[in-house]
Amino acid sequence: MNHHHNHHGEAGFKRKVDYLDRPERSEVLSPEGFLTSIPIEKTASILDLGAGTGFLTIPAAKLVDNTVFALDLDAEMLKLIEEKAKEAELANVQTLEASMEAIPLEASSVDVVLASLVLHEASSLENVLSDVSRVVKTDGYFACVEFDTKGTDLKGPPMEIQISAVKLREELARFGFEVVKNWQLDEGMYVSIVVKK
């Protein structure tokens, strides 16, 4: 199978990785800072949607003894996460090559779902949230970072695919989620931490 078609070869893949792992990203929101804002027990199982380079997967795996699932459509990214996990001697990372809209996990099987700057890439937000709601346990958490640059001079993804905090809250409510914390970050980003009722 040829996985290179979406990266324009190795150079494109490397550019994407460098972009996703750039230090500025941690300055706006460090993965550790993001993770500590969610009540994560040592025994929690975690699912990282659109895990990319493992920006959240790896720090999350250091926090828990249970499995951290890294889900991404890109097999190369998942291979990179596996390498990083091995380097960090983390045996609790499991990669899933799948779509956020069809998560290959059992119902009510994870305690925490993470989504950093990936929800706007989904073809259907509704499908993603519906599936997240399916896999998260009752009283489990869904924590996401998204762009809402409306009314700012900031550049994010195209406006028509951005998901405002208000829109996200409304969509989440339809699937039994309640926002517990919401705050703005620099660069037109915000964090929503929600609990499944």
Rank of each mutant, 00 (worst) to 15 (best):
H3G: 09
H5G: 05
H8N: 13
G9P: 04
G9T: 01
G9F: 08
E10T: 04
G12A: 10
K14C: 06
K16R: 15
D18R: 13
D18K: 12
D21Q: 11
D21H: 06
D21N: 15
R22P: 02
R25I: 12
S26W: 08
S26A: 15
E27M: 14
E27L: 15
V28N: 01
P31A: 09
G33T: 14
G33R: 07
F34K: 09
F34N: 06
L35H: 01
I38G: 14
I38Y: 09
P39C: 10
A44Y: 05
I46C: 06
I46T: 12
L47K: 11
L49S: 12
G50L: 09
A51E: 01
G52N: 13
G52L: 11
T53Q: 09
T53W: 13
T53M: 14
I58A: 04
P59Y: 07
A60H: 02
A60Y: 05
V64A: 07
V64M: 04
D65W: 07
T67N: 08
T67A: 00
V68E: 04
V68H: 01
D74N: 14
A75N: 10
A75L: 14
E76K: 14
M77N: 09
L80A: 03
L80G: 02
E82F: 00
E83Y: 15
A85N: 11
K86Y: 01
E87N: 12
A88V: 07
L90S: 08
N92G: 12
N92Q: 10
V93F: 15
Q94R: 15
T95D: 05
T95M: 05
E97P: 04
S99T: 15
S99P: 00
E101I: 08
I103H: 03
A107E: 08
A107V: 06
A107Q: 05
S108Q: 08
S109N: 00
S109F: 03
V110K: 13
V110A: 01
V110H: 00
L117Y: 02
V118E: 03
L119P: 07
E121F: 10
E121M: 07
S123R: 12
L125E: 11
E126Y: 06
E126L: 04
V128H: 11
D131V: 06
D131E: 09
V132N: 13
V132Y: 09
V135W: 05
V135C: 09
V135K: 12
V136I: 13
K137V: 03
Y141K: 04
F142R: 04
C144P: 00
F147P: 05
F147W: 14
T149G: 09
G151E: 08
G151D: 03
G151A: 01
T152Y: 03
D153E: 12
K155Q: 13
G156E: 02
G156F: 03
P157K: 08
P158M: 14
P158E: 06
M159H: 12
M159V: 10
E160L: 10
I161D: 02
I161K: 10
Q162L: 01
Q162F: 00
Q162R: 12
I163H: 05
S164C: 08
S164L: 06
V166L: 02
V166D: 00
K167E: 15
L172K: 07
A173E: 13
R174A: 13
F175V: 11
F177A: 10
E178M: 08
V179A: 15
V180C: 04
K181V: 03
D186T: 08
E187P: 04
E187G: 05
M189W: 00
M189G: 06
Y190F: 14
V191P: 08
S192Y: 03
V194E: 03
V195P: 05
V195L: 08
V195A: 12
